[in-house]
Design a protein around this nucleic acid. Structure first.
Length: 241
DNA sequence: TAGGCCATCTGGTCCT
DNA sequence: AGGACCAGATGGCCTA
């Protein structure tokens, strides 16, 4: 689904990039037949659709200008257009780096059912949103003893339920295929709790500081089980203290 | 072939 | 004036 690395490199290495983006790009090739783009003084060439919009705007400009008394900004010079394009490319690269960083923060189990190539931007945002909400649920539920619902919430609710986007209503749940089995993990929580009880019962010497693992702690352990989550350190320090 | 995702270009707007 | 940000447009690539 997502673009291959070669695809991306091809994009970035395309003639559109850097130096001759205006004169050599596909866009410019398409625009080669357009002379003196929309009465812009020939400083640069607009795309056909942009040219139509400009001409449409120009036809309405006199009236609007008379109403607003606002001078119409001149189109950017070719140099400024190129530098603006370069800045825009840099800005988008920064955004993409931020997305990569965000994907790196998400624990593996969050994305376990989804191929790396399917971690699109929108998927990354939704998973991150669901993950943060789940962590918040753990924090909010830390005061109560029965937090088994938290894990099922994490695994079942991947953040779509609160998304009011009409595009998702009645359509495929984009996160459905990466949900884990709630029953399996709920059983794992129970197992962790029981194991902790067993350890405490077997070793009375450690019972003074090893309390039975609460479901909250079990959930936290699960959250950090496949990543370097701070939950692991938190649990260790909590046990050792 | 249609649709999704993406990079890029572009013009508009706001801010410094 | 120039940069940052945004949204629309466009075309390429990939998958179902």
């Amino acid at each position: 689904m997502a673009k291959s690395e070669q695809d991306v490199r091809g994009k970035e290495g395309s003639p559109v990039d850097t130096n001759n983006n205006t004169s050599n790009s596909n866009t410019s090739t398409r625009s080669d037949n357009i002379k003196d783009a929309g009465g812009c003084g020939g400083k640069y060439q607009l795309r056909p659709r942009a040219l139509q919009a400009r001409r449409r705007s120009d036809s309405e400009w006199d009236f609007q200008d008379s109403m607003r008394h606002k001078p119409r900004p001149l189109p950017l010079s070719r140099y400024r257009r190129k530098t603006a394009n370069a800045r825009e490319r840099y800005r988008m690269r920064q955004i993409n780096r931020a997305f990569e960083s965000l994907r790196g923060v998400l624990p593996a189990w969050v994305c376990s059912r989804r191929a790396a190539a399917d971690m699109t931007k929108i998927t990354t945002l939704r998973l991150a949103s669901a993950y943060i909400r789940s962590l918040q649920d753990v924090l909010d539920g830390a005061e109560s003893q029965d937090n088994s619902w938290v894990l099922s919430s994490i695994l079942a609710d991947a953040g779509v339920t609160e998304d009011p986007s009409p595009q998702l209503s009645g359509q495929e749940d984009p996160l459905q295929d990466q949900r884990l089995c709630p029953d399996q993990d709920t059983e794992l929580v129970t197992l962790l709790c029981n194991m902790s009880d067993a350890v405490v019962l077997q070793d009375n010497l450690e019972s003074s500081y090893l309390t039975p693992m609460s479901e909250t702690e079990a959930v936290a352990l699960l959250l950090g089980s496949e990543s370097s989550s701070p939950w692991q350190d938190h649990h260790h320090t909590q046990v050792k203290s």
